[in-house]
């Protein structure tokens, strides 16, 4: 009996590496944001992948612009295999040949709503809406309400460049009767708000000031904001309707000429898979891009998760915006910050 047990254990131990032998000893390097995103990716993607393949997954944490700079600096000899980027970065990376174009035949591509995979695979859908102080705005505001004289100089903004600020410029242009292709209209309308009350880089900072009424409102991206609002009774978040919220996407990219292309593809398949996408929606209020995900309750109402909802969102001409970036950064420095 005891003999049999020892034999079974020995067999199991011997079989373990056999199952995972294909990728044992390899390390997949994934660049992403820290905090909740890393936690969810570790639980739902990295750990199952490690168990399945025997490879190790290493996360490189930081902001997406740091990763972008790293990709360009390492372009001849990349060390990252997978990188998470913003929608305004992905098409540029593809244009410079630093990421692998999304493969229309791959299961990941097919799982995602049509038209979403620009440059890389679409990972999550969030919208640019308005976070506001509920005492200053008894009713959820529309975009145009931010331009009322009472709030002059009291609107906080994200730094430029960012999805938030490109989106806010596009909204300003629409309020002025144009769109993002008319930068003069966008910048002069936005400058009417006065200098930003704060250039926000952290949620705690802006929410503390918004809670106290020092900041009246700010254009912010759903997702994190929605999942943090529980701690701030005095702060609300709304998706305005005129124009609708601006659609923003996080993208997951396979780095070109990376050391572990096959593992990278497997990671991406899991990242856009139903399990991870559902966890993203339920825990972070990030809308799924995978069309097979069905949500219920709070996650269903808080996230953008149906094609109909996507249709009401403002979609920006990102490739065009990316080309304007150097010039718009200068204009932002001068005309918005330098007021």
């Amino acid at each position: 009996m005891r003999h049999r047990l020892v034999g079974t254990v020995a067999f199991a131990v011997a079989a373990l590496p056999a199952l995972a032998q294909d990728f044992a000893g390899q390390t997949l390097v994934v660049g992403t944001w820290g905090g909740d995103i890393e936690r969810l990716l570790r639980t739902h993607v990295a750990e199952p992948l490690e168990a399945e393949t025997g490879a190790r997954v290493e996360f490189l944490l930081g902001g997406s612009s740091d990763r972008m700079a790293k990709l360009y600096a390492e372009r001849d000899n990349p060390t990252m295999d997978v990188t998470f980027q913003n929608i305004y970065e992905a098409p540029q990376l593809l244009a410079d040949g630093l990421v692998v174009a999304p493969d229309p035949e791959s299961p990941a591509f097919k799982a995602i709503w049509e038209g979403m995979n620009e440059g890389c695979y679409a990972m999550s859908l969030v919208g640019l809406g308005i976070a506001y102080n509920k005492q200053l705005f008894p009713e959820p505001p529309e975009w145009a309400d931010l331009w009322k004289p009472d709030y002059h100089g009291r609107i906080a903004m994200a730094p430029y460049p960012s999805s938030e600020s490109d989106g806010f410029l596009a909204v300003a242009a629409r309020l002025a009767g144009a769109d993002e292709h008319d930068p003069d209209a966008a910048f002069s309308k936005l400058a009417e708000l006065g200098p930003p009350a704060l250039t926000y880089t952290s949620l705690d900072e802006i929410f503390a000031l918004m809670d106290a009424g020092e900041v009246a409102a700010a254009p912010m991206i759903s997702g994190y904001v929605l999942s943090s609002l529980a701690d701030w009774e005095n702060i609300g978040f709304v998706f305005p309707t005129d124009p609708g919220p601006v659609l923003v996407r996080d993208m997951v990219c396979q780095v070109a000429n990376s050391p572990n292309p096959e593992l990278a593809r497997m990671f991406i398949e899991r990242a856009v898979g139903v399990e991870t996408q559902t966890a993203y929606a339920e825990e972070l209020m990030f809308g799924p891009t995978n069309s097979s995900v069905t949500l219920s309750g709070e996650a269903a109402t808080g996230t953008i998760n149906t094609p109909e909802e996507v249709a009401t969102l403002v979609q920006l001409d990102w490739p065009w915006l990316i080309e304007q970036r150097p010039e718009w950064t200068e204009r932002w420095n001068r005309e918005i910050l330098g007021q």
């Binding site: 930003p196 250039t199 950064t329 910050l337």
Partner: peptide
């Protein structure tokens, strides 16, 4: 982020505008 300094402009150009 409201007061531009030379170091901040260099950072912005190097890491955000690339």
């Amino acid at each position: 982020g409201k007061v531009a300094t030379f170091a901040m402009l260099a950072y912005q150009q190097a890491l955000q505008v690339l």
